[in-house]
Design a protein around this nucleic acid. Structure first.
Lengths: 342, 342
DNA sequence: TTTATTTACGAAACCGTTTTCGGAATTTGT
DNA sequence: ACAAATTCCGAAAACGGTTTCGTAAATAAA
């Protein structure tokens, strides 16, 4: 095969081929009123023929718009986050934006580096679900300094003002606890994935409130356990808990993974769900119904959360300040009672 | 709060502040030998102080390198793909590259548009897992025309020469069938997600070969069913199959989702796995052991596939032609026999 | 017919970097 | 002391577009 010398044409060469100026070509391609219909047609045909595609970065440089947004999240191999991304992507695609994906791996240091990379024009906006370690917002201030809109989804930060879309976490936690209490549980425990994430804390607070309302007197640190280590550490911790003499008779997983840990631990320890342990999880796992036993979930609208967050972001990109930084969007969760709480 | 006028400094202003030229500043920042240690230090300190970050697109434009790669895949809310992305991201992060994520939603037309967006300098390389509809490679030719390295992962294209990393699909299909035959299955069926994807076809061929070797005489189209519609359509199809009078006594899901469909269908139809139907799936589902019943899987090394593909891509970005287009990397699958085939 | 207006295009500046190349100042060699 | 080499820096030209602004020609208004 002949190595085709398809010299990529840029606007300059295209202009030369047409005996026009680059200015005219540029304007013709974006259907400017300054150009006659006749030349517009010629230019557009030639562009097609020579397969001209404008260099996006040259264009970004001049227009100071990148048509790109960043989504930064802790992990991607997670049911919730991959659904959220899907929602974000749906809107981005609709708007013709490109999507840069970054993972913080739950590290603040990495998150900082990521935000750094988002500045200086790389992106027009940022969607972020913060890491467990993110207790300071200093890195995010760079973004407001450069007027780059930010929207939180799921994991937001209290100390930084930006629109956020979350779920009714307190109520959901309250609901989960009550459900377990109704089933006669005496020692329910909330497995929190973080002591710093507001979303987790709200869920935990709701849970504890329900216990208090029901007259429980136990110490909070018996009812609330932080599993904020690595996956392996968390699993070990859950397993240890279920093996200890103060084994709970029910757990609420603040995230899907913790509930899964409980399932595996029970399997390994020979405990039976729901007889020995009832389980509820904040989760959007589609296959919850076919787990053994089927898992009761407080289902978060992951896809919709992503969509909504993206919509807000674009709204603020197109019209800065349209959605106020103080606004919070609460999407409702849904409760599905299944085999793990029978 | 005072609206801080943090005027973002660019290299020009930084140079002015230092009474130096932009050339000197630029060189100082990248530790050029042309600049004295003294000025280097001054410049670097000033850059830090004024929080200077080079505009990435200006830099890309001049250097003709974007430090960005694209990963294009059919869907993201899929266990396999999200793990693959994780692997890709790990390498990209290590190399200091940015990751543009695109979804084709199994549409060739969208895939074409995506590839189009990847040209003209937007990315330095492309990792792709093609859509079900992708039966032509014309869109990918644009990439070779612009010398943009491409690497396939998982779903490769026969008619386009690029390095690919896949699994030992034929053998795995063969293995899956044999396992079912050993269990005494008389009517095993392969559920293929596509009639065009080589990866699927290989798995199917291995499966059929095992049947032939075992002396099966049935028509291939009774043993091989294409579920290449939407999710809902596929589910309906699987359900219909399991309800029909020629209901199979075992199915092999060419992808995770099809096996999940079978689980749900059985649940709805009152069929019991593995008694009424045995199930094996090509899958990398971590929670396969806690399904009801636990799912026998041919586990694909999703994470490693992503990593390997990314490594090859960077190898070809850094040294064009390093990995030949004809090379195929085969990563081994692992078989886990669980409750669904007992 | 003269003047005012509109139409259609091009020259050139600009976006923020990087890189080449030239040259002044300093150091080294003899 | 003078030539040669080295060190260190800046002017200017890219990179590939977009946008402003000026203007010649065509048309409309008087």
């Amino acid at each position: 095969m002949q190595p085709e010398q398809i010299k990529k044409v840029n606007i300059k060469e295209l202009a030369r081929l047409l005996s026009l100026s680059t200015a005219t070509v540029s304007k013709a391609l974006k259907d400017s009123y300054e150009i006659s219909e006749q030349t517009k047609k010629k230019v557009q045909e030639a562009a097609l023929k020579y397969n001209y595609t404008p260099n996006p970065y040259a264009s970004s440089l001049r227009k100071k718009k990148s048509k790109t947004i960043a989504v930064v999240l802790p992990e991607v191999d997670d049911n919730y986050f991959s659904l959220a991304i899907k929602g974000i992507q749906a809107i981005a695609e609709e708007k013709g934006y490109h999507l840069l994906m970054y993972l913080s791996h739950e590290k603040l240091s990495i998150e900082k580096a990521i935000i750094d990379a988002c500045t200086s024009g790389r992106v027009d906006g940022v969607l972020i679900s913060i890491s467990k370690e993110s207790n300071t917002a200093s890195h995010l201030n760079q973004l407001i300094a450069e007027q780059i809109p930010v929207v939180f989804f799921d994991r937001a930060m209290d100390v930084f003002e930006a629109p956020r879309v979350i779920t009714n976490d307190f109520e959901s936690g309250y609901y989960a606890a009550n459900l377990l209490l109704e089933k006669g549980c005496k020692k329910p425990v909330f497995l929190s994935v973080s002591s710093s994430l507001p979303i987790c804390n709200l869920r935990a607070e709701g849970f504890l409130k329900a216990l208090t309302d029901a007259g429980f007197k136990g110490k909070a640190n018996d009812q609330l356990i932080y599993c904020d280590g690595t996956d392996a550490e968390n699993y070990a911790q859950v397993k240890k808990l279920l093996k200890s003499k103060k084994r709970p008779d029910a757990v609420v997983g603040s995230v899907e993974r913790l509930a899964i840990h409980a399932y595996f631990a029970c399997q390994e320890l020979g405990l039976t769900i729901p007889k020995d342990l009832k389980v509820v999880a904040f989760s959007s796992l589609e296959i919850a119904p076919i787990l053994n036993p089927s898992l009761s979930t407080i289902t978060q609208p992951a896809f919709e959360t992503g969509k909504k967050a993206a919509e807000i972001l674009f709204s603020n990109i197109e019209k800065p300040g349209k959605v106020k930084a103080s606004e919070t969007f609460i999407l409702p969760t849904a409760y599905f009672e299944r085999g793990s709480t029978l």
